Simulated assay, not measured.
Amino acid sequence: MQNTSHAVMAQRVEASDSPDDFPTPPWATRALLEHIIDEPNFKNLSCLEPACGAGHMAKVLKEYFGEVRYSDAYKYGYGPVRDFLTYPYETNAVDWVITNPPFRLAEEFVLRSLNVARSGVAILARTVFLESAGRYQAIFMKQPPSKFAQFVERVPMVKGRLDQKASTATGYAWLVWEKRRQGQPRLMWVPPCRKDLEKPGDYSLPGTTTKAVRSR
Score class of each variant (00 low, 15 high):
residue 29 T to F: 03
residue 96 W to T: 01
residue 4 T to Y: 11
residue 8 V to W: 06
residue 136 Y to Q: 15
residue 107 E to L: 06
residue 10 A to R: 12
residue 44 N to R: 12
residue 31 A to H: 01
residue 142 K to I: 07
residue 99 T to A: 15
residue 157 M to R: 06
residue 98 I to R: 02
residue 46 S to G: 05
residue 152 V to M: 10
residue 36 I to F: 07
residue 134 G to Y: 09
residue 148 F to V: 13
residue 107 E to Y: 01
residue 11 Q to W: 02
residue 216 R to I: 13
residue 199 K to Q: 14
residue 79 G to E: 10
residue 167 S to A: 14
residue 22 F to I: 13
residue 116 V to D: 09
residue 126 R to S: 15
residue 94 V to Y: 01
residue 160 G to I: 11
residue 86 T to L: 05
residue 53 G to T: 11
residue 169 A to E: 04
residue 29 T to P: 02
residue 208 T to K: 04
residue 38 D to A: 05
residue 53 G to W: 13
residue 126 R to V: 06
residue 120 G to C: 02
residue 18 S to V: 13
residue 31 A to I: 05
residue 162 L to S: 13
residue 69 R to S: 08
residue 7 A to R: 10
residue 153 E to K: 03
residue 94 V to L: 00
residue 208 T to E: 10
residue 46 S to N: 02
residue 205 L to N: 07
residue 179 K to R: 12
residue 147 K to A: 09
residue 93 A to E: 12
residue 27 W to L: 06
residue 73 A to K: 04
residue 19 P to H: 10
residue 187 L to I: 15
residue 212 A to V: 11
residue 54 A to M: 06
residue 6 H to G: 04
residue 150 Q to D: 11
residue 41 N to G: 00
residue 134 G to V: 08
residue 131 E to I: 00
residue 187 L to S: 14
residue 214 R to G: 09
residue 1 M to H: 15
residue 39 E to I: 00
residue 23 P to I: 08
residue 113 S to A: 14
residue 88 P to C: 04
residue 193 C to V: 15
residue 15 A to R: 10
residue 115 N to V: 02
residue 4 T to E: 12
residue 208 T to S: 04
residue 22 F to S: 08
residue 72 D to S: 07
residue 133 A to I: 05
residue 6 H to T: 15
residue 150 Q to Y: 09
residue 196 D to Y: 05
residue 70 Y to M: 12
residue 38 D to Y: 01
residue 158 V to P: 04
residue 8 V to E: 12
residue 182 Q to V: 14
residue 35 H to I: 05
residue 178 E to C: 02
residue 214 R to H: 08
residue 197 L to G: 08
residue 121 V to E: 02
residue 82 R to V: 08
residue 51 A to C: 11
residue 107 E to H: 00
residue 210 T to V: 03
residue 106 A to R: 00
residue 191 P to R: 13
residue 100 N to W: 01
residue 86 T to C: 02
residue 94 V to Q: 03
residue 161 R to E: 09
residue 174 W to K: 01
residue 105 L to I: 08
residue 107 E to G: 00
